[in-house]
Amino acid sequence: MPVAVLPLHRRSPADAPRPGLRRNLRRLVGLAATVLVAGGLLAAPAQADPSVEEIEAQITEQWHKLEPTVEDYNRVRSQLKVNREKAKKLEKRMQPLALQSELAMGRINTIAAKYYMTGTGSSTAYVGSLLASGKPGRLAEQMALLDHLAAGERDEISKVLATLERYTDKKKELDDLIATQDKQQKHLASSKKQINAEIKRLQASLPKSVVKAQGCPTITGVLSDKANTAVATACAQVGKPYVWGATGPSSFDCSGLTQYAWGAAGVYLTHYTGSQWNEGRHVSHDDARPGDLVFFPDHVGIYIGNDQMVHAPQPGQSVGVASIYNVGKPVTGFVRPA
């Protein structure tokens, strides 16, 4: 008996899922997965914690942003200190001149009153207006009145007034500069605070065993007793933490360490790398000796020979010994403090 072969069923085009339906199905699947993840029924892909190396790289990146700000802040702060001292000295010099000016103006008013009372002179009305309005405020007005006086009186009074005017103008320049630098200092301090907060946040996530301090090696070739003192002092700080703006004895920043080390030898250095660059004699790399300052962009350390230095690196690290080629910055030069 012959076997009947049934024809295979072919799906007509009308039975195939439509593209729009496929898209809707995919959306429904995606939505269901989202709901399951949100409800804790389906685990989301785990986000790996950053490694120690990655965190340190982020700290270094933030420090590279902060270091120029620190240096600018130190520069502005040192300039402010100098300018405020200048302003104080000028003020002291102005005090006797101000008294002389008061006496001179009293003399002017006495003579002007005589002109006014007697009606003598060609500018009685002008003199009268000056008396009515009080003391002349500027040198030009004062000199106009002095034209009415005798030559001896004119010379005596005009010298005092002219000197006082110069000092007053100079002090105004300094006061304006100090006000500008005060604003710069506040802006830089605000920037430093923000970046420092991010550095501290990153440091808090580091294992405590990451930070290590290295001791100084045996050092030979020290040129002088002062250099020897500076090197010995710098090496004694190895292991102490970096703190921005610190000058010791328990913590340091880079220029604070060099200032502290050479200060122990009786040599004053400004707490700013830009100034320290000019506070000694420049020497070549071949002539560099232990105790010399070795400079990088926005950084400085104490050279100890064999291409090594003692320095305060950056937040999260301690004062330590490092190769001058292992700080991520090119060597700018060497300076031997006076």
Rank of each mutant, 00 (worst) to 15 (best):
G266C: 10
A204N: 11
T229D: 00
L130Y: 07
P45G: 00
M117Y: 04
V321I: 14
Q259H: 11
L223T: 06
G333F: 06
G305T: 08
Q184K: 12
D253P: 09
K81D: 15
G280L: 07
D49S: 08
K200S: 15
K240P: 06
L177Q: 13
D15P: 04
T273S: 11
V3P: 07
V310E: 00
V29G: 06
Q214R: 15
R336S: 11
G256C: 11
I302Y: 05
N306F: 02
Q314Y: 05
A132P: 05
A232H: 11
P96D: 00
T110A: 15
H285C: 01
Q47C: 03
A44T: 10
Y73T: 13
T124G: 04
F296C: 01
T118N: 00
K186C: 09
A43S: 15
T180M: 12
L41C: 06
T270W: 11
S12D: 06
Y303E: 08
Q308M: 08
A230R: 06
L269A: 02
L145A: 08
D307R: 13
N326F: 02
P297A: 05
R336K: 10
Y242A: 09
L36I: 01
A32I: 06
K92P: 04
V294M: 07
M1K: 09
P217L: 09
P290M: 06
D182C: 03
D287L: 05
A125E: 12
C254W: 04
S78M: 13
P50C: 08
S190T: 15
P241L: 01
V310K: 07
M143V: 12
D175T: 10
V127G: 00
R23D: 07
V319S: 01
L103Q: 15
H311P: 00
Q62D: 06
P13N: 03
A236P: 04
F295M: 05
R77L: 14
A179R: 08
Y167H: 11
S209L: 03
G30C: 09
F334L: 04
S318Q: 09
R22T: 02
S250H: 13
R84A: 07
A322T: 15
Y272F: 07
V3A: 14
Y242G: 08
V335K: 10
E54V: 05
L97F: 01
N326S: 15
K183V: 13
A14I: 14
V52K: 09
P136A: 07
N326V: 01
A261P: 10
L188D: 06
D307G: 10
G333A: 01
R289A: 14
L293D: 06
M117V: 10
E156H: 03
S78R: 11
R166A: 14
H64S: 05
T218A: 11
Q79R: 11
R107T: 14
S318A: 12
L103E: 15
R84W: 00
D286S: 14
T120W: 00
V160A: 03
R84L: 11
